[in-house]
Design a protein around this nucleic acid. Structure first.
Length: 271
DNA sequence: CAGTGGGCCTGAGTGC
DNA sequence: TGCACTCAGGCCCACT
């Protein structure tokens, strides 16, 4: 589920509401992808300072320590007072004086990991090696172009890898390539200046637009208030195999790359 | 070193 | 109805 837009939408939906809260309890459900790495009880009494995002990770800053939260494929957060008793897929509750933050994650590819502090978090293996933030000023055409040309992978897989730019997952990678007129299989190193410029711009545009629309809800994603996203209705190619291209009417095609499906319009995407 | 493929886990959908 | 199988928004890690 959660690509950068969904994670950012989630962050915005509870960052203000949880800021300043004191942790009153931690409840752990089934094991997630990684252990918390700390005693839950040791978090009691800590104050929540704010919530940041790095790639698809949320960083919940405490007055002592940081919680790294990842939503995996099927995760979502809720933040509210008086949440119902935890269900079989609710694997982490952070009870605070201002409400309970709950991770719901049926497939359990997500995780909540404790880092002792900023240095520990920055150096953490999960955050190390991440590429540029596409919505930040660091994401320049020049830097993106250099990173892209240095890759020998097909462009779709380079985008998904997150080494050059973070946050572009399987839905948005296909959408961004459609808007850039580039096929998913095209070697990254063979993208010319004109398409490189379009691709760089499209990454920003698509992700920003998706954030504005609350992200994509394909199945069950919702933000921490329980609200759904609507970007999926604007998708040009993702999940539309066989349907007519919204621009030229040509049937959308699908293919497999690295066990993930890619979608493209054979007419609009020629390079 | 970079790139690829397996695997983690559950649920929904499809075809027999 | 049941079973076997495929697929799903991500990404670490072992291997080549």
């Amino acid at each position: 589920m959660p690509e950068l837009p969904e994670v950012e939408v989630t962050r915005r939906s509870f960052a203000q509401a949880i800021a300043g809260a004191r942790v009153t309890g931690v409840r752990l459900g089934k094991p997630l992808r990684w252990p918390l790495g700390a005693d839950g009880d040791a978090l009691v009494g800590r104050q929540v300072l704010g919530v940041r995002r790095r790639g698809k990770y949320l960083l919940v800053d405490l007055d002592e320590g940081i919680l790294l939260v990842h939503l995996g494929m099927s995760g979502s957060l809720r933040f509210a007072h008086g949440l119902p008793p935890p269900g079989p897929h609710d694997h982490f509750d952070l009870a605070t004086t201002q409400g309970t933050l709950r991770l719901h994650d049926p497939r359990r590819f997500g995780a909540v990991v404790h880092a002792a502090g900023e240095a520990d978090a920055v150096a953490h293996k999960l955050l190390g090696g991440l590429g540029m933030e596409p919505l930040s000023d660091d994401f320049t055409l020049d830097a993106f172009s250099r990173g892209t040309k240095a890759s020998r992978a097909p462009i779709k897989q380079m985008l998904l890898a997150g080494k050059v730019v973070v946050g572009v997952g399987n839905i948005y990678a296909s959408e961004v390539l459609f808007l850039s007129g580039i096929r998913p299989q095209t070697p990254s190193a063979r993208i010319g200046p004109a398409r490189m410029r379009r691709l760089h711009a499209a990454i920003r545009q698509v992700l920003e637009h998706a954030v504005e629309l609350g992200g994509s809800t394909l199945k069950d994603f919702s933000n921490a208030d329980g609200a759904y996203g609507s970007y999926q209705a604007h998708a040009n190619v993702y999940g539309r195999e066989g349907a007519p291209c919204k621009v030229c009417g040509t049937p959308i095609r699908a293919l497999r790359q690295g066990q993930r499906s890619s979608f493209f319009c054979p007419r609009c995407q020629r390079a």
